[in-house]
Design a protein around this nucleic acid. Structure first.
Lengths: 219, 219, 219, 219
DNA sequence: AATGAATGAGGATTCATTCAT
DNA sequence: GATGAATGAATCCTCATTCAT
């Protein structure tokens, strides 16, 4: 697995701390914040609780993040970026366009597998994103931008390509996306948030999901 | 449209106030609470803001609802109940089992149409439910109970029936549900929450959704 | 036992309601108020709690008592009056001055016995008086007035008489009172408030108390 | 006067602040709380009033004491402890048992004198203790514990010793205590709480009190 | 960089009291 | 007389944030 691959998969918490030059305390703060906010929601989480869990003084948080909201943003923005990363990673592009996956089904498998691992490694972060997206225009803005500029075009190109290859139905891309997206996202949410404790046969589930999608949009 | 039908569709806010003997102020409080909580989330909503919007004194809220959480619960519980209502309404059962809808596709259409209208009339309520479900065990409990005791059995019976009729694939019911549910729910969320302002051709969307589902699970 | 005697002994709660023309609800309110205030103190007792315990609406209290404090006063004032009653009851005076009790010891016994029964029948009322005396100037005023005008003169006369009879030491009355009072009051407080649940041999305790007092001030 | 002696006498307010490492504001809070609670009672005292009198923000109170009740407890507990201190102080024990006071009267004088000074230096604290003892089980518990484990045994030993020495009557210790205690406590309450403003000849009063007690229980 | 005491605005909730019915 | 809905000031307490050390 290439370096790049890894970076789109493994836990962002670790990454955050590597990337920027963070003090150990700052990392503790981030970790504590993610844990608690994922559990109780941003508004219901107090900075003092974060400080306590992180083992730092209350003031320390504000040394690193001007406001509580800043802390939220600096948790949420990187996930958005990372979430979109594979869509314009060289590898992604190459594979799709250079026949590494000759058929759509293989591509779908690789894609779902990749996002599955990403979600698996970042459940609390994504829970936070999912919840707070609803309430914070800044986050919505960032998300929309990334989606419109990165994710949507990449998917568009990919779908067009496979349509040209004659492997999927000749529906408008938007329609295809509106069908596929809930199926994949719904699976991931069910798997990791609604029923995380159930014993899942992940491989089988992924394959069934692909079959369902292929029935819906495949030729 | 029968009386019964209506009761599963139209706005619950009205209904709440009709059912119980509420004072005008109490209704104002409920309406204001629903509006603001849907917009900002439960935790970020202050009782003083609710009071102001409702045009009552802050103390009045606590005369009707012992705590802020009580207010939330009394907003959320009825939606859960109402959401499940059609699944065990006589009409629902009759239609499904007495050949009113002879084929699954017709049934699906009627069902999605019905839930579509319900969601349309109760967006803020459902937004609140969706958000707060994540944080309040009491709500989770109520939801799980209604789902396991009412919704799930009804769907199960229906699917079994149509499988016997040979109209849908012979997959395990759970698998079918896991496929259909995100497709339908995903459509409704996209339609009413993610992109409520887009100009939608609802009839066309519903039909496409049905086609997609039928491709996935139909024979 | 004469009518008059009884009136200085039995529970004042009953009496209050007989005396004035009170509605049943008002009596309920008084009873509830006495119970709760004795238990938690005036300040910590809410009118709504009183209303609930009394089984009346919140507003009803204020129909009978202009303010919460009025309610306290109308509980406390009668006890003060009643507490002082025997000191100027005809019988008290007669007995002391007309040789019914020829010696001080007999008088003391009759006196302590009488006050013992009074306290026994009015514990909650007296608890309230004891507690609230400290904080409410109005109550202090009433108490001082009754004490200076009724109780103190009566005791004074009595002590002087028995001094003349040569049955008690020739100490200043004030000194005698300062010795006797805590002994008697201390006994009653210990008996009914500090250790009400202990098994007491009341007769023996009273006699010991008298002996102790007589040793201290008797000749 | 030895260091030890002093610690059983002088104002506890000072001591509290020396002992623990308190910030100046915390001391101010304690002082203000003691003043106001002694005057109006715990329940009738608001934290905002305490804050105002202490010259701090209301929030500051809760930084030092988790709840208002915590504040009360941390005022009241130390008095209980200090009140009992002399009973098991080395000096107390030594003097009693090693013939420093050969007779009971001298011992009584020293004892009353010592407690007299303690009360004099801690009137507000003791007022609070006296009032709130009635309503707070925690305080009652602490008090009972200290009394049963420290004060009562010490007094018991002392009385037994003096009985053996033949200086006091051969009554049960409990009886002796029930006589002496109200006499001494009653004197202190009259002196400092009931009539603090009267001009007292303290030395004379103490001697009279002793005489009274000795008549009652002395041989 | 880190602390933690201090703040004061704002939080939910309670309260005594009023008033239309 | 009695009700109970309504009030809004006041209650205890929490919060994000600041600042001197």
């Amino acid at each position: 697995m290439s370096e790049q691959d890894k970076s789109t998969l493994h836990s962002m918490t670790e990454e955050l701390s590597e990337a920027e030059n963070m003090t150990p305390k700052q990392i503790k703060i981030l970790e504590a914040a993610i844990e608690i906010i994922a559990e109780k929601g941003y508004s219901a989480t107090s900075t003092s609780e974060i400080a306590k869990r992180a083992g730092v003084a209350e003031g320390t948080i504000f040394r690193h993040y001007r406001t509580k909201k800043d802390l939220l943003i600096s948790i949420v923005k990187p996930i958005i970026t990372h979430f979109s990363a594979p869509f314009f990673a060289k590898k992604f592009v190459k594979e799709v366009f250079q026949d590494t996956h000759t058929n759509f089904e293989d591509f779908l498998y690789a894609f779902i597998k990749n996002r599955f691992e990403f979600v698996k490694s970042n459940i609390p972060l994504l829970k936070i994103l999912l919840q707070e997206l609803a309430f914070h225009p800044e986050i919505q803005g960032t998300f929309k931008k990334v989606f419109m500029e990165k994710i949507y075009p990449a998917i568009n190109r990919t779908l067009t390509l496979y349509k040209e290859k004659g492997q999927i139905k000749d529906l408008p891309n938007d329609t295809i996306i509106r069908m596929m997206a809930p199926t994949i996202i719904g699976f991931l949410i069910t798997r990791f948030i609604v029923q995380p404790d159930k014993e899942w046969d992940d491989e089988a589930e992924i394959k069934e999901t692909i079959t369902y999608i292929m029935n819906g949009i495949g030729k």
